[in-house]
Design a protein around this nucleic acid. Structure first.
Lengths: 149, 149
DNA sequence: TATTATTGTGGGTAGTTGTGGGTATCCATG
DNA sequence: CATGGATACCCACAACTACCCACAATAATA
């Protein structure tokens, strides 16, 4: 399974193309067929899933009972989904909608989050993390959770 | 499992490379693929986990339900994460962000902490420890906590 | 204490990667 | 069929990374 770690600050060109860091490309599972699925995620950022991981998620989504909630979620999710194969220079491209939602226009940051990558407009990212430096607090809380096992 | 003991005072070069003490390299689990995952830790220091140990933690993190809280924690954690394979001279490299957070610029100390290594700017480390020698107190307090369980 | 081997430090260099453009091809539309 | 817009492909330059080698410092051995 693909695992992404580290954060990289890049830029989108005027055609909506984003370079995927070489490290991420190397970490990409061959089953993913060089393809990322980009989708909207909470806090107005984007996520890029390797195709194979996304397919699994889709299967799981299909299996859910069709309640009004899941139906709504499916519609909202799929509205923003695009799949994008790495081009010959190792880039993927974002749709206009995705750029609009995420506020990405020039500088962005790609953050490896284990099984997927998050894409943020650089300004929004710093704002999100900068809201009070409660890192230490969060850390100890998490450590506690882990220990519960 | 890897076990690191002892502390070593080294220096970062202008490219952000840090030598890993020979003793630590020998203690590294072969499963770690010569790779350390460096991440921010409490008190503005850094931790280096062997890849295999870090992966276990990631699996546990992935298994958690995606609530706003866990998402934020993940982001805070991953914001500073990098993975770094030992180069041909047995060094790992720190990112600009990691050096900024930890204040490491020239001299640093690597402290073996059992399953992981802590990296401190040498000045901050001495300040942190120097704030009153409360070793005895800490020793007895911690021993008591352990007994409670 | 002398000798040798190992380990830490500091660059230099070649290859890879990121950025920005240009050009061709395809598709929808008039 | 012609036109405009979008997409994919290709190339060139700049920047960076990883690799290599040399030297210094330390530790180990006799």
């Amino acid at each position: 399974m693909s695992r992404f770690r580290g954060s990289y600050e890049y830029s989108v060109d005027e055609k909506g193309r984003v370079n995927v860091p070489a490290k991420f490309r190397k970490a990409l599972n061959p089953d993913a067929d060089e393809t990322f699925v980009v989708v909207r995620a909470p806090n107005n950022c984007l996520r890029a899933y390797p195709l194979d991981a996304w397919s699994e998620f889709e299967d799981e989504l299909d299996a859910r009972p069709q309640t009004p909630q899941t139906l709504k979620l499916r519609r909202q999710l799929y509205a923003s989904v695009s799949d994008s194969k790495l081009d010959s220079q190792g880039r993927i491209s974002l749709t206009a909608l995705q750029m609009q939602i995420s506020g990405i226009d020039k500088k962005l940051i790609l953050v490896g989050q284990g099984p997927y990558i998050e894409l943020w407009d650089i300004t929004r990212y710093e704002e999100f993390l900068g809201d009070g430096d409660d890192f230490d607090e969060a850390f100890f809380q998490s450590a506690q959770e882990t220990m519960k096992k």
